[in-house]
Design a protein around this nucleic acid. Structure first.
Lengths: 211, 211
DNA sequence: CGCTGTATGTAGCGATCGTTACAGACGTGA
DNA sequence: TCACGTCTGTAACGATCGCTACATACAGCG
């Protein structure tokens, strides 16, 4: 009865219309929840922004919480797909450019999803565990990527050190995003990232000399 | 008629009771808003948690928005007061311990206020400008403090560099706070801070040798 | 054509929202 | 004692909340 299955055989025209509507609802919900948080977003607003009645929303999603879960899932999927290839071709000589670009890309390409993640991570009132698990998964994958770049960049430091450095980079990225959001004019993202890169490079160099 | 003036002459007993109630309302509101955000907190919940009827809340504060403003103002004031002395006595030799402690203290002593700041900074739906201004003021003061410590620590680097390093430290602190909130077990705050300190120290050392 | 399942539109459910009116309780100054 | 200002309790206001029942509208299939 309820809950649209993803069209097993033929995406008939009516079903395609349904998928389009579902997409429009997701986009509207994502935009609103990113701006006002979960509790601050009402179904009627999603309805107005998407142009579809509330009944349609509840035909496609089983509840407001389910809608949030779908938004997170969709956002995460898009985020995964937007990731550049693991960049095996990057030379070690291409200093921190890759690291810089990776971090900057995360902040420029998908600021909406980052904002949503931070928001529902901080809004800790029984947000459904599925979303939280998804957020952790996204962050862990981001950590893996950063770790690889850091290892390549720093001339293969200790495995543990690379992991910690990656955590630091991710944290700095989140913090810089917040700072830029609070006071955009006073925050030069690129310069800060470059500074961080130089600091980490210096640390890697020293820890290497210590051997 | 409305809006309690801060008792000009004598804090009579009834007025004192009023101040106590005001404090209880503020504490309840602060706790709830920190957990669920602004939109996610209802007056009835504040009423229940504080033990006072809604009419009392509206006698002490003119609206829900006004209550939020007061919560931010109060939190900021407490935060200012909880700041340690400018620490002139700190020796340059006491490596990064001061920096570490300052950052850790901010995260340990006042996590509620930090969470609240981040939440309402990310929930950007016409949050009243007074709160935003207060948040910026708090952050700027935190930056000043960190900058001084960094300058002391790094052996007086360039002024601009110190400012940028301070921004980086603040951003890292925010980001690490978020990371610790998302996945407490996977985030070793102390270790991360120490790593950051070492990286910055290494950078300062190299930039000094370059002279 | 009618039958079936997908998707949308209309109307409204009970609950809760922020907010207010108003009466009363209480300490205080005259 | 009595009027007054401060503060709290009761009860409700209209609006909106998340959500649902139900009647269509439309496409595909026999």
């Amino acid at each position: 009865m309820k809950r649209a299955a993803p069209a097993r055989r033929a995406p008939t025209r009516k079903q395609q219309q349904g998928l389009d509507s579902r997409r429009r609802i997701l986009d509207a919900a994502s935009s609103l929840m990113t701006e006002r948080g979960f509790a601050g977003t009402s179904i009627s607003e999603v309805s107005r922004l998407s142009g579809l009645p509330a009944s349609s929303i509840y035909w496609h999603f089983e509840s407001k919480e389910g809608l949030l879960g779908a938004v997170v899932e969709e956002g995460a999927q898009r985020w995964f797909e937007s990731l550049p290839a693991p960049a095996e071709s990057v030379r070690r000589g291409a200093r921190g450019a890759a690291l810089l670009r990776a971090a900057a890309a995360q902040l420029e390409k998908g600021p909406e999803f980052l904002r949503l993640m931070l928001l529902i991570a901080l809004e800790r009132k029984e947000i459904d565990p599925t979303s939280l698990a998804m957020i952790r998964r996204v962050r862990r994958l981001a950590l893996d990527r950063i770790e690889k770049i850091v290892a390549l960049e720093g001339g293969a430091p200790g495995a543990e050190l690379a992991r910690d450095l990656a955590s630091l980079v991710l944290a700095a990225a989140d913090g810089l995003f917040v700072a830029h959001h609070i006071d955009p004019r006073a925050t030069d993202l690129a310069a800060q990232f470059e500074l961080l890169r130089r600091a980490l490079a210096a640390l890697a160099r020293e820890s290497k000399e210590a051997d």
